[in-house]
Design a protein around this nucleic acid. Sequence first.
DNA 1: ATGATGAGCGCAACCGTTTGCGTATTTTAA
DNA 2: TTAAAATACGCAAACGGTTGCGCTCATCAT
Lengths: 342, 342
Amino acid sequence: MPAKPATIKEIAKMLNVSASTVSRALHKHPSIGLSTQLKVQKLAKELNYEPNQTAIFFQKGKTYTIGVILPELSEAFFSAAVSAIEDTAYKRNYTVLLAQSHDDAEKEKQLVEKMKNHRVDGLLVSVAKTTANFEHFNMLKRYNIPVVFFDRIPPIKNIHYVACNMETGSIEAVNYLLQKGHRSIGMINGPPTLAASGERKEGYIKAMTKNRLKFDPSLIVSCNLTEQDTKAALETLLANKRSPTAIVTFNDYVALYAIKHARQLNINLDKDLQFVSYANLPLINYMDYIPVASVEQFPYLQGQKAADILMDLLVSKSQSADEVQAYYKVIVASQLVENRKK
Amino acid sequence: MPAKPATIKEIAKMLNVSASTVSRALHKHPSIGLSTQLKVQKLAKELNYEPNQTAIFFQKGKTYTIGVILPELSEAFFSAAVSAIEDTAYKRNYTVLLAQSHDDAEKEKQLVEKMKNHRVDGLLVSVAKTTANFEHFNMLKRYNIPVVFFDRIPPIKNIHYVACNMETGSIEAVNYLLQKGHRSIGMINGPPTLAASGERKEGYIKAMTKNRLKFDPSLIVSCNLTEQDTKAALETLLANKRSPTAIVTFNDYVALYAIKHARQLNINLDKDLQFVSYANLPLINYMDYIPVASVEQFPYLQGQKAADILMDLLVSKSQSADEVQAYYKVIVASQLVENRKK
DNA sequence: ATGATGAGCGCAACCGTTTGCGTATTTTAA
DNA sequence: TTAAAATACGCAAACGGTTGCGCTCATCAT
């Protein structure tokens, strides 16, 4: 029933030894006699001694804590990633400090500052959409705080990151549809401003040309990811003279909008039109009409890898000189998974 | 380009004043002359001084950090709640330390220990399913670390919590269906071992009896929340002699399973059978066939309230004596929301 | 002129733990 | 027997910032 936890000093006083002896005894330091060690450990247990971590953090200049900054925690992708990060950190005895930028560049910058002052050992970041200036990340280098970016990677050099290559997944998606006999394959892509849109498009084109099919630009339409715009995009595709028998959509939301609209148009989704999308929703499993396949981006795996890399950096930092030898650039290959029929 | 951040002592040395003067100057302490204040603040800015939080944490015995322990971060309910918690904490200049128990009682206990040693100022907990011993929470009281439970509340006395009352929502759900003209209303409930199942059932019964309808126990069937069991439950209900025209389901998953199965049975979901469920999926919006209404549990609101309460406790702790006057028991009323037609 | 007042600042302790170094005591080797 | 080495422990500084107390002046009223 202690109001305050026991301290090393108190233990020392009670045993008439010095604090250093207690500290060493608790760490089983060889220069402490066995009898003393046992005495100390016994009393420590009795008093329910637990080291004051804040003191240790301060003393060591290390907190065994990693910061995580991402746009929106409530997005399925990110919550899965954070879940993995926390699991990985826990296994290595690290703790996770969490914050979300809400895609606000200014807040992101403040959070980086805050994390730095908290003396996190390292940082995991998925950058905000609006972030245009990346100076706050470079600042961390000067303070020797390693950063690993994941999913949303800033366009700067000399960074560690893990991301998902949309191109391979897109190639797989198109190949899959080609194997199924489709020859006219449409794409409802995201806004051209997004890098992710470009990767998808590239993959599409590569897959088509590698299969000696000519690429028809009119079969790729952009949309702003809203339901309205998706509907319009679908109708544009359907009106195309080479009316597509399959469509690759930017993500699950777009796919679901399109599917819904297609059904309202009385299109037979088994025979006349098939969809493939990029998986970001776990709930595909509960739906009636779903894409026949999805490009999985493995958020859990991405989070895991990013955390692993960060901790590698943390141990190598404390070991060798702090010059960075190389930068981790991990690409998690997106992968097409066929959605189970029901 | 400092390898190490500037410290107060360094500033003091450069200006030939004492560290205490620098500290006070930075805090605009009245006993420091204006000229000195400006000198100090100017140099601090130049050197990019930022206080070492670990030192302050240690010194003050306070970390301005709150711990959050919950079962599964990747569950939509919890990620929404954490999102709210982080937002609320951020506004009050607190930081969030996050960990998930994965519904493992032992891990939960360890996490509580860890959080305590990290000297979090307070804790937000949604307890693991398997937790049977609650001693680790009482331990926190002795160390004067306030805890606020949310959603999953332990069955012990003298705790602060915010939870959602399923009963009111259930009543609303049944009333809603009664108003729509349904007289035979079924319920696919969860396993009887869950408190949440009991609340739903109680609400159902109360609504029926208040409307002077007699309660038919055979219209409530339990399931273990799997797809298989849900199908079976649905068929049981359909085989009931008072074949129900509406069904209240334990949650969205169950509802979707049931809806899927009903459609396979060629049941007209507009006319012959209507569903009402408990909202835990945000993606209802994207589906074709959905429950006509859902009992919303407001995860964001719950997280927000829990965080607010915790911070109230933190300020009142530092102010008055640490005897707890009363316990916060906030019930967020679940509320029926009609799902928009499309 | 003198004492009181207050403004402006420094001293030093403190928070809990770690760790390099010194030292006393015992053991070992020569 | 004596010097060397090993054993077991204490001293004290350090990490960075905060704060109660005391000190030194200049200012002011008497």
